[in-house]
């Protein structure tokens, strides 16, 4: 059971395992007893190569995948319960809003879903906040670029003023200006007290954005801590080198 103090932690995972059926008898262990705690007000970056189990971990955190073993608490509640997701925003990887709708129509829906929270933003404010140009608001989504769609996705996450956001590869598909803008937006969100958990394989982005990082490889969490601690532990000067050293070290072992 969660203690009173634990209820204030946005996310807690204790010994989380996930086995996926692979054929009739064979099973694949996607997560091998992952324990992790996200502190309020921090930006946490989860790093890992493709197939490491990052998306599975995020989906378990949100109650979208049921863990085979272990305990998960989102805002102190079982994540499968709707009340656990109050104040939580999530943007999946490769998110594509309905192609025939315009950002305005879609945001009206997202805004109404958001109005289930106490103090939501207006849909237009959210679109302005993510920097989507006004001329794109009434264009069908299928006519928007990948970067624009990513901004619409972010707007739909921020519209209900969440205190904790989980983003799966939020910078993928964005041009350098878009990446800069989104990073600015995330830092601004964090400066206002928001907590961010992001999955990314773009190490350079993680490096100057996150307070702490975790390295997930083949379902195991190899490291959790500050970037300086990771650099010190591996004896490398760059995050990319340190990441490779951790992952390859695990492979060699």
């Amino acid at each position: 059971m969660a203690g009173k103090e634990d209820l204030h932690k946005p996310l807690q995972l204790k010994g989380v395992k996930k086995l996926f059926k692979k054929g009739l008898k064979e099973k694949k262990e996607a997560l091998k007893g992952v324990s992790l705690q996200i502190e309020r007000g921090e930006i946490f970056g989860l790093l890992g190569p493709n197939g490491a189990g990052k998306s599975t971990l995020v989906k378990i955190a949100l109650g979208l995948i049921i863990p085979s073993e272990g305990e998960v608490l989102l805002n102190g509640h079982n994540p499968s319960k709707p009340q656990a997701k109050k104040g939580v925003g999530y943007l999946p990887e490769h998110f594509r809003p309905p192609s025939r709708l315009t950002p305005e129509t879609f945001m009206a829906f997202a805004g109404e879903m958001g109005s289930l929270s106490d103090n939501p933003l207006s849909p237009t404010d959210a679109l302005t906040l993510v920097g989507l140009e006004r001329s794109a608001w009434s264009r069908q989504m299928r006519r928007l670029s990948k970067g624009m769609l990513q901004r619409v996705g972010l707007a739909s996450v921020l519209v209900h003023r969440p205190s904790f956001i989980i983003l799966d590869e939020p910078l993928s598909g964005l041009d350098p200006i878009g990446r800069h803008d989104v990073k600015e937006l995330l830092m601004q969100f964090n400066a206002q007290g928001g907590t961010i958990f992001l999955n990314s394989h773009i190490l350079a982005d993680i490096g100057n954005l996150c307070h702490r990082v975790g390295i997930l490889h083949q379902g195991s969490l190899l490291f959790v801590g500050k970037i300086e601690e990771l650099l010190a532990k591996t004896g490398r000067a760059q995050l990319e080198e340190a990441f490779l050293a951790m992952v390859k070290g695990e492979k060699d072992a």
Binding site: L64, L91, P92, E93, R96, P97
Partner: peptide, 17 residues
């Protein structure tokens, strides 16, 4: 496939709803 299901269910909406 498009992520809408994940987006909706990551809100305080139950699967029944």
């Amino acid at each position: 496939e498009e992520g809408m299901l994940l987006l909706i269910l990551s809100r305080p909406v139950s699967r029944v709803q």
